[in-house]
């Protein structure tokens, strides 16, 4: 027994088993069903796009990240996977790589790395791609003949636009908004994913499985997706009921990037509010903005911009949603006038 063998630390001397690295990797694990189903629907193109985005994010983190080890914390991996999942399957790989680099470098690392960024890095990458390559990112080739054939011109050379010689098809949202003959896609197709759309966004079922797993592990704040769904449903239901909108509320919930956005993009802990009260304000804003953009905006989809806009609001939401201190009414204490 020697005196030097024990350590002295401040209390508490025990810790919960949770860790940031564990949370990050469990998010990665929860995405496996989504990735598997996307490969089933879109074939090798899905694998290529996702791998390219992941490689771009990991490389950017390794080269420019705050510490050499930060690439192992899993956060760059998540950004890469999520970016890949919200791109069209036929997307040129050089563009995907550029998107991954831009999202990581300008969405996260310039702010100071993990925990410091304001905007969801995957969505920053996607917003960049949307602005830079508006045609490529909204080109949805019709389903290819065999599972093995590519979904578009994945191998377009850098700085060249993709050549799409197959017929293009509309996504459920695009069809309903801009189509010549708008139809509401049946909910079952939206639920199981047999529609056109971005790689990981077509099947609500598998996103739900992953999201519920994370919520059960306590690694996802369920207040956020729930508040987004409630506000989307209520706001779009209202517009649908009075005849302003052609989108039925349930269609709103299960189409486009809503599911992936609500469960995986909006719940990014770094860029969402800290308190549950704040999460409700945040989620309500996302649902509301999404419905507005989808009905009146120039784009078929609005989840990405809604989340980015609400990301910018988080500091204000945090300020407005401070918890009520125990033993007070919650109202700000009146400043003592006689304190001088």
């Amino acid at each position: 027994m020697t005196q030097s063998s024990v350590k002295i630390t401040a209390s508490p001397h025990v810790r919960s088993a949770d860790s940031t690295v564990k949370i990050m990797w469990s998010v990665v694990i929860s995405l496996i069903p989504v990735i598997a189903s996307s490969i089933y629907y879109f074939g090798p193109s899905a694998i290529l796009v996702i791998l390219t985005c992941v490689a771009a994010c990991l490389l950017t983190e390794r080269l420019f990240g705050s510490t050499p080890g930060s690439v192992a914390d899993g956060s760059a991996m998540i950004t890469g996977l999520l970016l890949g999942l919200c791109l069209p399957p036929g997307f040129p790989l050089w563009m995907a790589f550029l998107g991954g680099f831009f999202g990581m470098a300008f969405g996260k690392i310039v702010f100071g790395g993990l925990g410091q960024n304001i905007f969801n890095p995957a969505l920053v990458g996607r917003a960049f791609l949307q602005a830079a390559f508006p045609v490529a990112i909204t080109t949805w080739p019709a389903k290819s003949q065999t599972w093995l054939s590519l979904q578009g011109d994945n191998f377009a050379l850098p700085f060249m636009s993709p050549v799409v010689d197959t017929a293009t098809a509309a996504t459920p949202l695009g069809n309903l908004k801009f189509g010549d003959d708008p139809v509401v896609t049946p909910l079952a197709d939206l639920f199981f994913g047999s529609t056109g759309g971005s790689i990981g966004e077509t099947s609500a079922l598998f996103i739900l499985i992953g999201g519920l797993y994370l919520a059960w592990r306590g690694h996802l704040n369920w207040h956020i997706p729930l508040s987004i769904f409630v506000s989307t449903f209520v706001v779009s239901g209202l517009f649908y009921a009075i005849g302003i909108s052609q989108f039925p509320p349930l269609f709103m919930l299960f189409s486009g990037g809503m599911m992936l956005g609500a469960f995986y993009m909006a719940t990014d802990m770094v860029t969402s509010p800290v308190s549950n009260k704040g999460c409700w304000m945040f989620g309500f804003g996302i649902g509301f903005l999404t419905v507005i953009i989808r009905i009146w905006g120039g784009l078929p989809e609005g989840v990405m911009y809604s989340i980015l806009l609400m990301n910018a609001m988080v500091p204000f939401i945090n300020r407005a949603s401070q918890p009520r201190l125990f033993g007070t009414s919650g109202k700000k204490k009146a400043k003592k006038e006689d304190a001088s």
């Binding site: 949370i23 925990g115 969402s272 308190s275 918890p323």
Partner: peptide, 18 residues
């Protein structure tokens, strides 16, 4: 590790601090 603003500490604090 850096704070990832997960909010778990707010849910744990018995006197509702931040």
């Amino acid at each position: 590790m850096p704070c990832i603003r997960c909010g778990k500490c707010l849910d744990a604090c018995p006197i509702f601090l931040n």
